[in-house]
C-alpha cells in the first residue's frame, strides 16, 4: 500500500440556494495513493466537479478535511495555499487556455506565476511541448488548434511546475472517441514516466475502464462504492454502479436478465453461441461491450434468458462453470 497523497475525511459541502442550502457533497471519505490513477465517476449533478475543486480548495469545504501531502489545505495561509496549488495541476473539459497567448506562452504562464526566469521557463515549455507531441505548434494560438491539441497544451501547462498530482475535470468529455483515447494514453504515459498521481473525474465508464486503477462512484453527493476498478466492474454492489455500467442497455432489460462479465477468459471460445446450441433455447443479447486483448476477452454482456426457468437456471450454472462472473439483474437495476 502506497502512502496517500490526497486524503479526504468527512468532507461536506453545501451551497446556499434560493430554497435553502443545497447539499453538493455529503460526508466524503477518500484516500488517493501516490502514483495512482484514480477515477471518480458519477452522473451529472452527483457532485464530482465540486469534489475535485475541494482537492485544491477552489471550493472551500463546509466541513471535513482535505489533506494534500499530509497538509490540511484549509489551515494554510493564502500565500501557502497559492504555493501548494502549484503542486496540483488541473485540466478542464473546456481546456481553459489563455486565448490571447500562444501555446508556448500558455505553458510559460504557471512558470511566470512561480517567478521562474524567462529563458529557463521557455526551455521548460519547449521540453513539455515535446512531451505532449506538439513541438511544432509552439507559436500557434488556441484558436488555431484542434480540441485534442488544446487539451495537450493544457496538460503541458498543468505539468509545468512539476506537480505531484494532476486533477482532470471531465478532461475528455468535449473530445471525440479517438482523441479521447489518445489523451488517455498520454495521461497514462505521464503517470508512468513522471510518477504523477492522476485524479480523473468523468461520467464515462470507458474512461475509467481504460486507465484507472481505482475508482470511487459518486451518487447523490455520496461515495457509494470505491475500490479497485476490476473488482467493482466484476461485482458492482451499488445501484449507481450498475446504472453506470449499463447506461446503454438499461432501458430494454426484461424479466430475467443476466450480466456476464468477461475478465480475461479466452476469446477463442464462442461461449454464448455454444450455450445456445447446448441448451437449444434462444437468448437475447441486449447489450454487449467486450473487447479482445491478446486473445483474452474483457468486457460485459447483458443477456435476456429464455422464458423456461429450468433452461435459464441451467444456463447460469453453465456460465459460472466456465469461469465467468454472472449476475442476475432486474429491470430497474
Amino acid at each position: 500500500m502506497t502512502a496517500s497523497i490526497i486524503e479526504i475525511r468527512g468532507l461536506t459541502k453545501h451551497f446556499p440556494g434560493k430554497n435553502g442550502d443545497v447539499l453538493a457533497l455529503d460526508g466524503i471519505d477518500l484516500s488517493i495513493g501516490e502514483g495512482e490513477i484514480f477515477g471518480i465517476i458519477g452522473m451529472s449533478g452527483a457532485g464530482k466537479s465540486t469534489l475535485v475543486r475541494c482537492m485544491n480548495l477552489l471550493e472551500k469545504p463546509s466541513s471535513g478535511k482535505v489533506l494534500f501531502d499530509g497538509k490540511d489545505l484549509a489551515s494554510l495561509s493564502k500565500k501557502e495555499l497559492y504555493e501548494a496549488r502549484r503542486s496540483i495541476g488541473m485540466i478542464f473539459q473546456q481546456f481553459n487556455l489563455l486565448k490571447q497567448r500562444t501555446a508556448i506562452e500558455n505553458i510559460c504562464f504557471p512558470l511566470e506565476i512561480a517567478r521562474m526566469e524567462k529563458a529557463a521557463a521557455r526551455r521548460r515549455a519547449l521540453e513539455l511541448l515535446e512531451v505532449v507531441e506538439l513541438g511544432d505548434k509552439a507559436n500557434a494560438y488556441p484558436a488555431e488548434l484542434s480540441g485534442g491539441q488544446q487539451q495537450r497544451v493544457a496538460i503541458a501547462r498543468a505539468l509545468a511546475n512539476r506537480p505531484k498530482v494532476l486533477l482532470c475535470d471531465e478532461a475528455t468529455s468535449a473530445l471525440d472517441p479517438a482523441t479521447t483515447r489518445s489523451i488517455l494514453r498520454l495521461l497514462k504515459d505521464i503517470n508512468g514516466k513522471f510518477g504523477i498521481t492522476i485524479v480523473i473525474i468523468t461520467h464515462e465508464m470507458r474512461v475509467v475502464e481504460e486507465i484507472c486503477g481505482k475508482v470511487a462512484i459518486l451518487d447523490e453527493s455520496r461515495v457509494v462504492e470505491s475500490g479497485i476498478v476490476k473488482e467493482i466492474f466484476a461485482r458492482p454492489k451499488s445501484s449507481a454502479a450498475k446504472r453506470l455500467f449499463f447506461s446503454a442497455g438499461a432501458a430494454g432489460i426484461g424479466r430475467r436478465s443476466i450480466r456476464i462479465v468477461f475478465d480475461g477468459q479466452s476469446s477463442f471460445e464462442p461461449i454464448v453461441a455454444n450455450m445456445v446450441l447446448r441448451f437449444k433455447a434462444p437468448v437475447n443479447i441486449m447489450h454487449a461491450d467486450t473487447r479482445d486483448i491478446n486473445g483474452l476477452a474483457y468486457g460485459q454482456m447483458l443477456v435476456q434468458l429464455p422464458g423456461d426457468d429450468a433452461a435459464a437456471n441451467a444456463m447460469i450454472e453453465h456460465l459460472i462453470s466456465r469461469g465467468l462472473s454472472v449476475e442476475e439483474v432486474n429491470g430497474n437495476a
Binding site: Y82, M90, L97, I113, N161
Partner: peptide, 29 residues
Amino acid sequence: DKGVIEAAAAMGSSPMRIIFRVMIPESKP
C-alpha cells in the same frame, strides 16, 4: 471566460496576478 480565471487560480495565481496577467490581457480587444 470564467474557466480561464479558474484555471489561473488553480495554478496558484493571486487575485492581483489574475487581474494583471489574465483579466486585462485576455480582454485587450
